[in-house]
Design a protein around this nucleic acid. Structure first.
Lengths: 151, 151
DNA sequence: TCCTGAAGTTAAGTCAACCTAATATTATGA
DNA sequence: TCATAATATTAGGTTGACTTAACTTCAGGA
């Protein structure tokens, strides 16, 4: 059903989805800026997304996702959000770094692992575990561990 | 200093390193089997590793890593081990799945995130946190959460 | 010794993803 | 309205990673 997509195609889908959400529409130019490729590359990518039935575009017009494209994009965005949440809230990375890492890991992580990472965040940040202050405890541990390693 | 390596080149380094460790030597044929590519691909990859000063090989002979190649390989292996440990011992994935995920994520994870994942495993599996039985507690939570979601 | 099969190599081509430069279309403000 | 700037597209080329098929080299047994 859902076709296998390369990391690159997933990036294009994600960019289109996010632009549509933020700006209402997705222009070739803006997609290129987000992904940091040339507009020619975007045009090429859109052609293959069209062939796969994931995107639509009238000549010289805006890019839109099809039903299937929207579903695929939602999957990528979901992976990104779970990962970013985990990296930021559980591991304590700053948002910038968390987003960059999420951008790369989102193409590599399995559904199983993603699900467990999400569950772990829920567990540690919620109140299911008793009275453990996770972010605080871990931060303390992490800092003292660093000191320990340096020695 | 250390040159930027593609995920593929990292895979070749890792395979060579592991074969040397397990079998004492690394043959083209065995590298090909590990990575699941043709021997011709391995020959090509070794040529580029040689050009980068990471591998040595006399014609028709065994493949060995140079000093620099060994360092690069160690970095990959280290990433793999930390990730696999985390996925297996903290998230509770079975070893097979953990290894496969580690193989993909190892090329995407930042040093910062890797360090924190390692610290987290240490924290949760060690005895620094009080009396929380992590694997057990998380497993319970994960199972009941699944049931909750299904409903 | 030599011949034969396994292992390594080379040749030639495919494919995906990118690029630059040139061209086409659209949109805008004077 | 129409020149010009901005945007989209096409043409043509590069690179990395892979393939199959043909070839060399090597090592062991009859």
């Amino acid at each position: 059903m859902e076709p296998e997509l390369s990391a690159q195609m997933e990036d294009y889908l994600e960019a289109i989805e996010n632009l549509c959400r933020d700006d209402g529409v997705a222009r070739v130019r803006d997609i290129a800026r987000r992904i940091e490729v040339s507009t020619a590359s975007v045009v090429g990518a859109i052609r293959t997304l069209k062939e796969k039935g994931l995107a639509d575009q009238e000549p010289y017009g805006y890019v839109r996702l099809t039903e299937a494209g929207g579903r695929a994009a939602a999957s990528v965005v979901h992976r990104h959000e779970v990962l970013q949440g985990f990296l930021e809230d559980v591991l304590g990375l700053d948002p910038e770094a968390a987003s960059e890492d999420a951008c790369r890991i989102e193409h590599a992580v399995s559904p199983e692992t993603l699900g467990r990472l999400g569950a772990m965040a829920e567990f540690l940040l919620g109140d299911a575990h008793g009275d453990l202050d996770w972010p605080g405890e871990f931060r303390k541990f992490f800092v003292s561990r660093k000191r320990r390693k340096k020695a």
